[in-house]
């Protein structure tokens, strides 16, 4: 079954490449509109060799991971407080909801003005984009903890910390992971948006650079690497989920 799936994936990729190449053969497009697959591959190899891909990828990955970590940490913490205290929720939820009406892409220039074109502004944009879905899922997850299990923990005189560690975290984890899946891919978007606005490094910067030089092959390479990065992050989250939530999945029939 697994090998069959791998084959299907390979066939679908090959078909895509072939289709792309066919367009190049049939229509006489200049390479700054649509470069041939082979020139994209050559461009890729070039920036791999001179080390610039590693440098730009490294910057973006660092921004994404730091932004994800910051967004996760603050959203889970605030989500826990919101779920625990109706007062905190009533105080803060109007702002949290309103903040979602603000398009992050439009705020990104402000953050770059305030925090400079360095890494910090990108980390913050990524964190802000990650924040909301993780927050919502944390609150929903905490609310999903069965009341009867809470009563059990009370009847066993569990402390607050024990209830958090042994009941609330494991019970909320499935819903929390839903937020994390979305958050992981959003963090990539956040970092790239930040790099578009103002940066001298990163894959977003590379796309901007390629556009300015009519080096469309470079734009293609950057986009593909970004897709790979987002897929890899998503894959890590899914693998982590499968490991931690093994109790939820039925073994394959």
């Amino acid at each position: 079954m697994r090998t069959r799936r791998t084959w299907l994936l390979l066939i679908s990729l090959a078909t895509l490449l072939l289709g792309w190449q066919t367009v190049i053969w049939l229509v006489d497009l200049p390479s700054f509109i649509l470069p041939a697959p082979i020139s994209v591959a050559r461009r890729f190899w070039l920036i791999v060799q001179d080390g610039s891909l590693a440098r730009h990828l490294g910057t973006t990955v660092t921004e994404v991971l730091l932004g994800l970590a910051l967004g996760l940490f603050s959203a889970t913490l605030l989500g826990y407080l919101l779920a625990k205290s109706p007062t905190v929720e009533r105080l803060l939820s109007p702002y949290i909801v309103a903040s979602q009406a603000v398009p992050m892409v439009a705020v990104a220039p402000l953050l770059v003005i305030w925090l400079g074109p360095g890494m910090l502004s990108k980390v913050l944009i990524a964190a802000l984009i990650v924040f909301f879905p993780v927050l919502v899922n944390t609150v929903v997850g905490m609310r999903a903890v069965p009341e009867e299990l809470r009563a059990l923990m009370r009847s066993l005189q569990a402390t607050r910390w024990q209830t958090l560690r042994l009941l609330e975290i494991p019970a909320a984890l499935p819903v929390f992971f839903g937020g994390l899946r979305v958050g992981a891919t959003l963090a990539v978007i956040g970092a790239v948006v930040g790099e578009f606005v103002g940066a001298d490094r990163g894959l977003g910067f590379l796309i901007n650079l390629g556009r300015g030089l009519y080096d469309t092959a470079l734009v293609f390479v950057s986009v593909f690497v970004l897709i790979g990065l987002a897929l890899a992050l998503y894959g890590i989250v899914v693998a982590l989920e499968a490991r931690l939530l093994a109790w939820q999945q039925r073994p394959d029939p």
């Binding site: 009867e148 009563a151 059990l152």
Partner: peptide, 28 residues
């Protein structure tokens, strides 16, 4: 601690094995 409670519908933690569910009060 001197009073134990058995709930309707077992009320087990779905992520814990039989062993770990029984061990819960002792772990606490």
């Amino acid at each position: 601690r001197e009073i134990g409670f058995v709930f309707q519908n077992a009320n087990l933690m779905p992520w814990r094995s039989v062993f770990a569910n029984i061990a819960l009060p002792l772990e606490l």
